[in-house]
Design a protein around this nucleic acid. Structure first.
Length: 497
RNA sequence: GGGCUCGUAGCUCAGCCAGGUAGAGCGACGGGCUUUUAACCCGUCGGUCGCGGGUUCAAAUCCCGUCGAGCCCGCCA
């Protein structure tokens, strides 16, 4: 039985509904956008690609809720930001002063990440949509049909709404908050409100406030013609916002709700679920310095959206092996993860981690070593190594377990070696031959050790001591071949003299 | 109170949607080779598919129930 990738299953479903699709995403830029948030984008993008692969048309929208109020002063914000709580993110200054406003500060690196990841999105900023009047009709409808909306929300959620509830949150022109004024009435031109700060005023249909979340969501489906949308499992619970959205879409706005794709959270090993408000975060942008985009995509795309992902950045090599194997097998998840026209060579990432350390990350040296150990270096391999070597270096420094790290000792002190060790190294060096293959070298260790009556374990230790200054290291045969027979001979002779 | 996911080999999981004699990787064990990192090759061991019922010629797979684990909703969005 052929296994079908989840994105293809969804794409099939979508194409039964129509040929053209607009897939929405909506991560709110209230803090650093992390790998967990990225799942929404990658889920959408995998489906987008699958739809296109099957002959349909699809585009991705990213609605950034820049008009959302700041919920609280997050731990990463300075104390004076207490006064901005409740104000829309688009109206709050950038905490680091480098962008126009708070929302842009977090939005920009994220959009940059999306570009690196090869995710094409049409960006819609909510504050602009409101200010430009795109929501005007929806707001009018929502206010006029306040009772029907309230009834639907009450029926779906089972909770009771206040008598004076309205599906609209006015932006108070006095205190600047968008979450503390109550609607007291409305006419064709204005929405009248009374704010907790004491101010009474009137708000415009264009940027004078926003619809409450559940209503806003359904409204935006209509305004933008959304046919599909991934969202976190918090929205997917029974009585949750998708359930209300579904009914609001049909009964208030007269549209079919988008095809839902609920997804699970991503857990960072040893840290727990990623959450910007709890400060458990590795910003996406930071990941992309350490891992190639296709691997980041693969981490998420290989797993069905509804299954939770435990991700341990220290334990990455196996995943990369699997990915590289998938390239050869033309695995669908890998295919959906590859970005642009990047071409892979047959050099494993795992190998680059070792060779890079030997060559001290010098590209030419790395290529030289790879060639010496039997890899064919053509233009394609060259480009590939150049690209992935940077990631290998960054990953090693940032996430790799200590035992994978080593450094060639600049020099070693012969007095630290016993006579036995010296004898071994001398004999070994004499027998080393430029034409030996890694396996031959490995065998030679045993041969020489036996010849002079040294335990093989001691022999290996002597080798590592002479090269690295510690008693363990990468597999000796390959390692010596990579270092260069000539160099090793010289080093061993010097130590044993 | 409600929703989702998981339970299959020692471990991590695939297979379940479209039922047809249980799979992979890792580990373990034996060997290649008297330590070499999360190395390579060959081979071996390893599972009453959580439990109980039902449907079926046939169930890991579909249905009902049940037990256990995790997360989410029941503030706001």
């Amino acid at each position: 039985m052929e296994e079908i990738h989840w994105a293809d299953v969804i794409a099939e479903d979508l194409l039964k509904r129509g040929k053209k699709h607009r897939i929405a995403t909506g991560i709110t830029p209230s803090g650093h956008i992390h790998l967990g948030n990225l799942r929404e984008m990658l889920t959408a993008d995998a489906v987008r690609r699958a739809v296109i692969d099957k002959g349909g048309e699809a585009e991705m929208l990213y609605i950034a809720d820049t008009f959302d109020p700041l919920r609280k002063r997050y731990p990463f914000l300075p104390e004076e930001y207490e006064r901005y709580v409740g104000m829309p993110l688009s109206e709050i200054p950038d905490p680091e002063g480098c962008h126009d406003n708070y929302a842009d500060h977090f939005l920009e690196p994220f959009l940059e990440s999306l570009e690196i990841l090869g995710i094409p999105v049409i960006v819609k900023k909510a504050d602009q949509m409101y200010k430009e009047g795109q929501y005007e009709d929806a707001i009018r409808t929502a206010l006029q049909r306040r009772d029907d909306i309230a009834r639907i929300i009450e029926e779906v959620t089972g909770r009771k709404l206040e008598e004076d509830w309205y599906p609209f949150m006015p932006l108070c022109e006095n205190c600047g908050r968008i979450n503390s004024a109550k609607v007291v009435g409305f006419d064709d031109k204005w929405i009248y409100y009374k704010c907790a700060c004491g101010h009474e005023g009137k708000a415009s249909y264009r940027g004078g406030g926003k619809l409450t979340w559940r209503v806003d969501w359904a409204a935006r489906w209509k305004i933008l013609g959304i046919t599909c949308e991934p969202f976190g499992k918090d929205h997917a619970a029974a009585g949750g916002s998708y359930d209300t959205g579904k009914r609001l879409a049909r009964e208030i706005f007269g549209i079919e709700p988008p095809y839902p794709i609920p997804y699970e959270w991503i857990n960072l090993k040893g840290v727990g679920a990623m959450s910007s408000s709890k400060g458990i975060v590795i910003p996406v942008r930071e990941f992309l310095d350490v891992l190639p985009p296709e691997i980041v995509r693969y981490i998420i795309i290989r797993v069905k959206p509804k299954k939770h992902i435990d991700f341990d950045p220290a334990n990455l090599l196996e995943l990369v092996d699997e990915f590289e194997e998938g390239i050869r097998k033309k695995d669908r998840a890998v295919e959906l993860s590859l970005v642009g026209d990047v071409e892979y060579s047959d050099i494993p990432f795992r190998h680059l981690v070792v060779v890079g350390q030997i060559a001290k990350w010098d590209l030419e040296k790395v290529l030289e070593i790879l060639e010496r150990t039997g890899y064919r270096i053509d233009e394609r391999a060259r480009r590939d190594v150049e690209r992935r070597l940077k990631y290998a270096k960054n990953w090693l420094e940032k996430f790799a377990p200590e035992k994978l790290k080593f450094e060639i000792a600049e020099s070693v002190d012969p007095s630290k070696f016993s006579e036995e060790e010296k004898e071994f190294l001398r004999t070994f060096a004499e027998k080393l031959d430029e034409n030996m293959r890694p396996e031959d070298i490995h065998t030679l260790v045993y041969e020489v050790a036996n010849e002079i009556g040294l335990k093989p374990a001691k022999a290996f230790q002597a080798i590592y001591k002479a090269i690295l200054g510690k008693s363990y290291g990468p597999r000796a045969g390959y390692f010596i071949k990579m270092l260069g027979i000539d160099w090793v001979k010289k080093r061993f002779m010097q130590v044993s003299s």
